[in-house]
């Protein structure tokens, strides 16, 4: 039995979202492992150009659901459209990029299809024709291996960076129209507007050095020691989400999936445990230094250099060592 694998891409205004290409690559790899075919699915309005772009990948076909009602994402319409399409075509696996949009509708889709749901997979292995997925648990400190049980499709969302879009196999795939009864599907929320959450006053993407502050800093009064290190390195202050939520630094300093994505020459993460939502925003940095008192913190897995210790002692010591080095 050959497996049928679907990859549901995400787009906005016809532009394919970056993680979707990684999902396509994952689908190609899974199809190769299982001896099956990978097919893409695209939902939206005015999808001709985007469909053709996806069609330049090595895929069995590209299914396009093109309708005015899908112009703006709503979970009701997207989940119902996919439910109908999946129920008809019966793919064995359906892969999604693990975006905030996907997480918003995917559990409801799994439920209505009585399908298995594997959120946030980072890798897979095929064992005797069955697929075992790895996904982070406990804030990324550990990874769980999970497998679907029982019949029915398996819906999987893939974490950013888990697969490389650079390894995409090119080809030429036929475009097929998904004819669905769009009129029967209704939105379950009324979208009023989509707007920028923050006036982007600080553009961290251009900073050569970023000193990033995490929950481990303890309170706002300790921010100055971080600022002193940033100044000594000629860099900017960044922060992980809990620091922003606590109001210790303004939101335009936030790095991670809901903040900015940065790739500086040097990234110093102090008191940051390294939850995946933070890692996706900074792991492309050239050199990463982690300072954390928990030797098991996942930040040490992506860092190049690590110091296990209390940042309140280590950070001023690094600032002092930098001054010492520049004077000698």
């Amino acid at each position: 039995m050959s497996a049928k694998i679907w990859i549901v891409l995400q787009q906005r205004d016809g532009k394919i979202q970056k993680m979707s290409w990684e999902a396509v690559r994952a689908g190609q790899a899974l199809a190769a492992d299982l001896g099956g075919t990978a097919e893409a699915v695209l939902l939206g309005s005015g999808m001709e150009e985007a469909g053709n772009e996806v069609g330049q990948c090595s895929l069995g076909s590209v299914h396009v659901a093109d309708d005015e009602s899908l112009a703006v994402y709503t979970p009701g319409r997207f989940a119902r459209a996919l439910e109908a399409a999946i129920a008809t075509a019966q793919p064995d696996y359906v892969l999604f990029p693990h975006t905030y949009q996907t997480v918003d509708f995917l559990p409801g889709l799994a439920q209505s299809l009585d399908a298995a749901l594997v959120p946030e997979a980072v890798s897979f292995e095929t064992v005797d024709g069955s697929v075992v997925w790895q996904r982070p648990v406990l804030g990324g400190k550990m990874f769980a291996s999970v497998r679907a049980k029982g019949p029915g499709p398996v819906l999987v969302s893939l974490q950013s960076g888990a697969f490389s879009a650079d390894e995409l196999e090119k080809g030429s795939a036929p475009i097929e129209t998904l004819s669905l009864d769009f009129a029967a599907m209704s939105a379950d929320r009324e979208i009023l507007r989509i707007e920028e959450a923050i006036a982007g006053e600080v553009d961290l993407s251009q900073a050569p050095v970023i000193v990033s502050v995490g929950r481990g800093v303890g309170d706002a009064e300790k921010i100055p020691i971080m600022q002193e290190l940033a100044d000594a390195l000629g860099g900017e202050l960044g922060a992980s989400r809990p620091v922003i939520d606590s109001g210790w630094l303004p939101r335009d300093r936030q790095i991670g999936s809901s903040g900015q994505t940065v790739t500086p020459k040097l990234y110093v993460a102090a008191g940051i445990s390294g939850a995946i939502q933070h890692l996706v925003g900074m792991k492309g940095s050239q050199v990463i230094v982690a300072i954390n008192k928990d030797a098991g913190a996942p930040i040490f897995n992506v860092a190049h250099y690590g110091i296990v210790g209390d940042l309140h002692e280590v950070v001023p010591a690094v600032t002092a060592a930098l001054k010492e080095a520049s004077e000698s």
Binding site: M142, R147, N301, A303, G306
Partner: peptide
């Protein structure tokens, strides 16, 4: 609809 087969720490030696 899913079962957990195992949990593990990330491979040692890959990190910092």
């Amino acid at each position: 609809k899913i079962e957990v087969l195992s949990v593990a720490f990330p491979e040692a030696g890959k990190g910092a």
